[in-house]
Lab assay of single mutants.
Amino acid sequence: VDYIVEYDYDAQHDDELTIRKGDIIKNVKKLEEEGWLEGELNGKRGMFPDNFVKEIK
């Protein structure tokens, strides 16, 4: 499942992704941690907030 970024987010920890509006995040999975998703961007896998992105259908 792929998501498109709607709002910029700067990573706060090493396991998070810095994302920018218009980025496409690939292979996204829901995490047990409420409010977070995990996906791949530019060869890096990491977490990001689910309210900054929208699923591409």
Rank of each mutant, 00 (worst) to 15 (best):
E32D: 12
K44Y: 09
L31H: 10
K26T: 14
E16A: 07
G22H: 11
E34P: 10
E34S: 09
D15I: 12
V5P: 02
V53Y: 03
E40P: 00
N42D: 13
I4W: 12
V5Q: 01
F48K: 00
I19H: 01
G46I: 04
K21N: 05
K26E: 06
N27S: 12
I25H: 00
G35F: 05
R45Q: 05
L37R: 04
K21Y: 06
D10Y: 14
M47G: 06
K29S: 13
G39M: 00
Y9H: 05
F48E: 00
D15T: 13
E33Q: 13
N42H: 11
E34D: 11
V5K: 00
Q12T: 08
N51F: 04
I4V: 08
Q12L: 14
M47W: 07
V1A: 13
V28A: 13
G39T: 01
E34M: 14
D23G: 05
I24F: 05
L37W: 06
G22P: 01
Y3N: 02
Y9K: 05
E55D: 03
G46W: 01
V28M: 02
N27E: 08
E34K: 12
G43W: 09
G22Y: 09
N42F: 15
E32G: 11
M47P: 05
E34W: 06
W36R: 06
K29D: 09
G46P: 00
E55P: 15
R45S: 07
T18H: 05
H13Q: 11
D50T: 14
N42P: 02
D15M: 13
D23E: 14
W36K: 06
I56H: 07
E38T: 08
F52K: 05
K44M: 13
I56E: 04
G46L: 02
K54R: 14
D23S: 10
A11F: 02
T18Q: 08
G35N: 07
G22N: 14
M47V: 08
L41N: 05
V28L: 03
I24M: 06
E55L: 08
E33P: 09
D15F: 13
R20T: 06
G39D: 00
D14V: 13
D8T: 10
E6S: 08
K30G: 09
G35P: 05
G39A: 02
E34V: 11
Y9S: 02
D2W: 15
D23F: 07
N51R: 13
Q12N: 08
D50I: 13
K44L: 11
L37H: 04
N51Y: 10
K57R: 07
